[in-house]
């Protein structure tokens, strides 16, 4: 059974189909790199997987259950374009709040552990607005990993991060993978993504045109997949 699967998902914005029957399956423990140009529908697909938006047609399932189920959402960690933390709460308060909303059993311990992991323990009572850009990003990463999600959905996670945050994120992702978590991430930083990815999916104009295991060709030459699909006209 797939950890998370999109089955023939269509999404219309008005009359415009941003997704045209996208089908994607991520087996448990996989790390899927979702590639595609701007406007291909990566963000739209990830938002639908994260239940932030409803598919117009098709269905999303998480471990075989409908993703509309509220309990299922607790298994998902989502990191979007925004950092998703409150500027007027301290780092610790932010994590406590999200722990409570995510139904984490021992919120305080989880928050402490998450701060430890991203190296923010010393500034746990500092307000997010006082943090530097990199610290804010690490806090966002801590927030997304707080409830040890079984499925991680990351929308261009490496794009706006600074070096230290990238290192932290890499480590956390590897750690999560070794614990059996499933990851779907969209990305432009192909080289970084390929190191982690076990699977690669290419989204073009709202359709998954390629989906399969990552090959060594891709690792050596990040542009390989794009070129392959540009050559043949659709």
């Amino acid at each position: 059974m797939s950890a998370i699967a999109a089955d023939g998902v269509w999404k219309y914005f008005g009359d415009y189909p941003a997704l045209r029957g996208a089908t994607l399956e991520a087996p448990p423990g996989a790390c899927v790199a979702l590639l595609g140009r701007n406007g291909a529908g990566k963000t739209t697909l990830l938002r639908i997987l994260a239940n932030l938006s409803r598919p117009s047609k098709g269905e999303v399932t998480v471990f075989g259950e409908s993703a509309r189920d509220e309990k299922v959402r607790a298994k998902i960690g989502y990191l979007g374009h925004g950092i998703g933390v409150y500027d007027d709460l301290s780092a610790y308060e932010n994590l406590i709040l999200f722990g409570q909303l995510m139904n984490v059993p021992d919120t305080k311990a989880a928050a402490e552990a998450a701060l430890e992991r991203v190296g923010l323990t010393r500034v746990r009572d500092g307000f997010a607005r006082e943090f530097s850009r990199g610290m804010r990003q690490r806090l966002a990463v801590a927030r997304a990993f707080l409830h040890n999600p079984e499925i991680l959905l990351l929308d261009e996670p490496f794009t706006s991060l600074d070096d230290r945050a990238i290192a932290v994120l890499h480590e956390l992702l590897r750690d999560a993978l070794s614990k059996g978590a499933t990851i779907v991430m969209s990305t432009h930083q192909i080289r970084e993504a390929m190191e982690l990815a076990t699977q690669v999916a290419l989204l073009e104009r709202g359709k998954i045109v390629h989906s399969g295991p990552r090959t060594d060709e891709m690792l050596g030459d990040p542009g390989w997949l794009y070129r392959k699909y540009e050559e043949k006209p659709k």
């Binding site: 914005f13 008005g14 009359d15 415009y16 941003a18 701007n38 406007g39 291909a40 104009r205």
Partner: peptide
């Protein structure tokens, strides 16, 4: 008008 919105998105996507 919806068609216009749709075309705008298409332009953006290309």
């Amino acid at each position: 008008r919806r068609e216009i919105d749709s075309l705008r998105r298409e332009l953006h996507a290309i």
